[in-house]
Design a protein around this nucleic acid. Structure first.
Lengths: 114, 114
DNA sequence: CCAACGTGTAAGTTTCGGCTTACATGTTGG
DNA sequence: CCAACATGTAAGCCGAAACTTACACGTTGG
């Protein structure tokens, strides 16, 4: 199954995020993707391997090229986790909720969401 | 400003996610949080420092305790980035869109979203 | 058919993240 | 006022991650 830690770890790297953002616009070959990064081509290939291992990317060989495409499944897993955390927080007490402190209203709390 | 790479890096660690999930239910002291993790107390303190540096957590000293609380701002940043990527992908061509291949309908593509 | 191409793999190095032990600092109950 | 407490900081270690150079392998145009 998909490992949240692995997915977030994959997304943490700037180079890999560049690759994902390019792939969000449509499939690309390994060579095309390597041009986007400022590292060597093998490094790019290794990044793609990481993305593939987490399920964020799918690869299909076609002739002597290799087409990569985005597989957004794991992204929804991240989105879900983040939303769960934010929702839990929205319903939880904060430090201001101690006895004696001026009661914080729901609207007041909304201000913290940028 | 908030650095997306730093935030995602912070979220990638399982220990830190445990801390965040606890803090989503309400504030806690360093000691209370340390009990949740299977690592030493200084390690917990360092994790909290990372979370604080990324803006995911806020700390307020109170007596000889130190209360930590969740600051969800950076979470929305992550959510926003993920949504942007997924939305871009949803509107992009895929490998099956090559000439001759059976045209994929919008409904067909929806199947890829778990 | 074979040279050039596109790409993945291997090996090695350096950098970085997380952990521990040991220490420093500020706070408070008695 | 001071011993015990809650916590942060420093220094050092170790394994994992990311990069590079060198190489291997299948594919295809001429």
């Amino acid at each position: 199954m998909v490992d949240l830690a692995a997915v977030l770890g994959a997304l943490a790297d700037p180079s890999r995020r560049v690759l994902l953002q390019r792939l969000a616009h449509g499939p690309a070959t390994s060579g095309q993707l390597a041009e986007l990064l400022s590292v060597s081509r093998p490094a790019t290939s290794q990044h793609l391997q990481v993305l593939q291992a987490t399920g964020l990317v799918r690869a299909t060989a076609l002739g002597r090229h290799r087409w990569y495409e985005l597989a957004p499944g794991p992204l929804y897993l991240v989105e879900q986790w983040v939303r769960g955390l934010a929702d839990t927080w929205a319903a939880a007490p904060s430090l201001d909720d101690r006895a004696g402190a001026p009661q914080r209203t729901a609207a007041r709390r909304e201000e913290n969401k940028p």
